[in-house]
Amino acid sequence: MKIAVLYGGTSGEREVSLSTGKGIIKALENKGHDVTPIDFSPEKMEEVLNLDVDLVFIGLHGRFGEDGKIQGLLDMLGIPYVGSGVLASALAMDKAKSKQIFSLNGLHTAKSEVFDVTDQHQFSMIEDKIKRTFTLPFVIKPNQEGSTLGLTIVKKEQDIRQAIETAAHSDSMILVEDYVKGREVTVPVMGYKGKEQALPVIEIIPKNDYYDFDSKYKPGGSEHIVPAKLSDKLTAQLQQDSILAHQLLGCDVYSRVDFIINENEEPIILEVNTLPGMTPTSLFPDSAQAIGLSYDDLIQKFVELS
């Protein structure tokens, strides 16, 4: 097939997307496809507008890639693409909205509140409200950003203001939520709509305090245990919750669902990634490997599902 790969982009996750794109391009070429690589930028829109391909494989992360905007453009152009559509992408990217949907449907989420940070004069008021509402430690992060960019685990009251400013650099809305201590796990989901399957659960053991940008993308930054050493009951619940979360948002083809298992052995859902990393150190390919699916076969499977 003639397949265009959109990668790179202009978000804070550009470096990761460059690596994801390279992996996808190589895998598609290995499978005999005719590949057109595009390092995407909204300023070079004509590259997308003039595409003559059978399918677009989106290897972008974060803004203008994972948030539904590029999907809307491709829909208008009538070009099919791999992965979730506009609404599912936008909902998954908006952490506050997706959490509302999860909790309404019986999935455990951390207590949270969202604040508008477009007006800096409101920062003191927001700081006071956070102090009244949350007990230390808690997390302050951009509402729509990936790869833990702009995230702070606030352990002291005097750090709240700085954490608000850091998160506000990345987004006009920030999310404050209880810090849940526990084991970090993630579950890849793939399949036709209504027939999705969960892949083996992965436990992530970061070398830093939490699974931050360096832990995710630097070689040796974290250890992945696949399948995670959990009871059969907890494994089944995580896989079931992942498929439910994927379906509740209306995701398509594939996604990856992140959880923390708290001290009571309850899975607390964090978010759904509609375009999870596909770099050589990424989680989804690791989990696929555990069921005998090579990286190239996994990419080909996404093409077939699409």
Rank of each mutant, 00 (worst) to 15 (best):
Asp67Trp: 12
Pro280Cys: 07
Val176His: 00
Glu184Phe: 09
Asp128Cys: 12
Ala288Thr: 01
Lys216Asp: 05
His169Leu: 03
Ala290Glu: 04
Lys44Trp: 14
Pro267His: 11
Val48Asn: 05
Thr109Cys: 00
Arg183Thr: 14
Asp39Val: 15
Ser124Glu: 15
Asn208Met: 10
Leu298Thr: 05
Ser112Asn: 10
Tyr81His: 04
Ala110Glu: 04
Ile174Arg: 03
Ala92Ile: 01
Thr36Lys: 08
Met190Arg: 03
Val117Met: 05
Val114Ala: 14
Thr274Arg: 06
Thr148Phe: 09
Ile299Glu: 08
Tyr217Thr: 00
Gln240Asn: 12
Gly83Leu: 06
Val35Met: 13
Ala163Cys: 04
Ser112Phe: 06
Asp297Cys: 06
Val48Asp: 06
Lys141Asn: 10
Lys301Ala: 00
Phe102Thr: 00
Phe259Pro: 02
Pro227Phe: 11
Lys69Leu: 15
Ile291Ser: 08
Gln158Gly: 10
Thr135Pro: 11
Gln197Glu: 15
Ile291Tyr: 09
Thr235Ser: 09
Glu113Ile: 14
Gly220Ser: 02
Asp286Arg: 13
Gly292Lys: 04
Leu238Tyr: 05
Val176Leu: 01
Asn208His: 10
Gly150Met: 07
Lys156Val: 01
Asn262Gln: 10
Ile130Asn: 06
Ala27Ser: 02
Glu46Asp: 15
Lys155Pro: 08
